[in-house]
Design a protein around this nucleic acid. Structure first.
Lengths: 348, 348
DNA sequence: ATGAAAGCGCTAACAT
DNA sequence: ATGTTAGCGCTTTCAT
């Protein structure tokens, strides 16, 4: 079944294609009579303008490309939802690229996006979260950014000078640790996070700073970086519990590790938060479904997505844009934190 | 900065655009010498063929459109991941449309997909899960399906005769209920699910059938449909616990309600599974992060996505296609189910 | 093996 | 207000 084109419509309406195009775009005045006639025919013939042809001449596609590492990690759908919400109002459509953590896929997708002539790119996760990213990989992104508006979401690329939108993880960690301290904890551990990721060092730095500010010592053997998963959280907690001296509270790199930590603690007979307080980071959906509900720091993932689109739009309009737009995280106090047990109450 | 085109390449290589196109597509023999020359120039100039122009002439875009109700619901990212995995190998790219449960958005996206000339459509959730879908909405989908290969994933449209891929929810529920029965339960409840969704009636039908097959009575007041959320699960469980006579096991419409049910049960001082067994459906990630880990029925979301793409490909190739490809669900036994308490052990 | 030229379906000057 | 026409960047006959 042949697709109907502007020519078909023009012919049937006895006008030129230009007029058809005009009513399609409202780009120039058309007499009410012919307009209605054309519109009627379009409806009747179920005319669907070919977006490809249209984009080809207009040199814009209305597509925003989104690169993210793992749509299966609940944080990202949340961000993506925000992106969609903000972009949809202006008629944007999205090309979602899931890199599954592969830097090659990032490169590949970057190229595909260029071939597809997306109007802008949102780059989330992956190489932009590395503490030290290979200069070639940095350059690649910069080169793309020179041709297509691009914003880095929750990450950075050394010396690239790219436009960024990010939650202030440092401030967020301060919030979490301060909360623990206010509850009366003095013996606080920190677990999770791969050492080569910048989020790990940022949060660790904030952790140390918050402790120092309260004149509390950091017990190094309670600082256990490693990974971001639930299983990592379990492992870390297991190691912590094997120590003769244990913290009364643990600050976790993210909600996953926090949940793992809780599971292990509970399995070993500890009560959370009575015996051990645990705080996470991100506020993924899971955080309030888990028992006990997790005290955590909200990154406001949806808002992050919306903001990213707003900033990208500015970039696309060649407006003035701040190099860094930062979002303030919020502490969400739920059930996994409480004052520490009194000395006498401590379990063996 | 002007994009480089086949003409630029042709000019620099002193050949015609046709030859350039040939090396780009490998569509016809080109002498090794000129091929290499052209390839070198392409690399040097960072040539990126314009996918729009290409698709315009080739009449294919390599894009698969995916309509789903809520990317924030962990089941769908899992499906989408499978879709990507299967499609990427063949160079497909995806246009993800999140309808947020709005039927109008479904219509809107269906039209956008047509304008974008996607090569195929995967329709997941929304109106195709309705027990009785408005005929006009059915017709709309059918009309699109007549022009673009389209497969219905985990749903159906009455009398539409469309190609479908779905997990066998009936069989899955039988699995869950039988597991409970095998554990020795005789007093089993069923909670969750909106009554106007087909999944609810299918699962309820399976529930009744499994009970009957085991000569067990269904206690109607323990059958509480309602909704699909964690909160719904909490509500339902609360009502169940207020009854003088209670079931020893509950079959839940999905993992969310199951998790809600567990939370409420635990809050009320019951032990899961010792006092009350609970089984879910879907096997979302949450299911093994929750405490106790949830016994549930896996829909194999990833596999569902992969299969959907495979079937869609057949449709696109105009191969013979089965009207219904069905996936066998699997019972995943974890910690939330056990034999019922002996009478004497029952808590008040 | 390579080139010339006609489209693909639409928009945007430029005319009238 | 409407029509004519030249692209947009590529692929694909049809020649040679």
């Amino acid at each position: 079944m042949k697709q109907v084109t502007v020519y078909d419509i023009a012919e049937e309406a006895q006008v030129s294609v230009a007029t058809v195009s005009r009513v399609l775009n409202g780009s120039a005045p058309v007499s009410a009579a012919t307009r209605e006639k054309i519109e009627a025919i379009m409806r009747k013939r179920q005319f669907q303008p070919n977006a490809l042809a249209r984009s080809l001449t207009k040199k814009e596609t209305g597509i925003i490309g989104v690169i993210l590492p793992d749509i299966t990690n609940p944080f990202f759908p949340e961000v993506f939802s925000g992106i969609e919400l903000e972009g949809q109002e202006e008629g944007y459509t999205f090309f979602l690229c899931n890199t599954k953590g592969s830097y090659e896929k990032e490169s590949e997708f970057l190229n595909i996006m260029r071939e597809k002539r997306v109007d802008g790119i949102l780059f989330i996760g992956g190489r932009i979260n590395l503490k030290r990213c290979d200069p070639a990989m940095v350059r690649e992104v910069v080169e793309h950014a020179e041709r297509i508006p691009l914003v880095l979401v929750n990450g950075d690329l050394k010396d690239a000078g790219l436009t960024r939108v990010a939650t202030d993880e440092y401030a967020g960690t301060i919030l979490a640790v301060s909360h623990l301290i206010e509850q009366g904890h003095t013996r606080i551990g920190f677990i999770g996070g791969e050492s080569h990721m910048s989020t790990t060092s940022v949060k660790l730095r904030a952790f140390r700073s918050a402790m120092k500010r309260a004149d509390l010592p950091v017990t190094e053997k309670w600082v256990l970086p490693g990974s971001f998963s639930v299983d990592a959280g379990r492992e870390h907690m297991k190691r912590l519990l094997e120590m003769p001296e244990r913290p009364t509270a643990v600050c976790c790199i993210n909600d996953f590790t926090a949940i793992g930590a809780i599971k292990t603690a509970v399995e070993q007979g500890l009560r959370v938060p009575d015996d051990l307080s645990i705080v996470g980071f991100d506020d993924i959906l899971l955080a309030h479904h888990v028992i006990p509900e997790l005290t955590t720091v909200s990154q406001q993932a949806g808002e992050l997505g919306r903001t990213a689109v707003r900033v990208l739009r500015q970039l696309m309009n060649k407006d003035k844009v701040k190099k860094l737009t930062s979002l303030e995280p919020r502490l969400i106090v739920r059930q996994s934190t409480s004052p520490p047990p009194r000395q006498g109450d401590r379990r063996p």
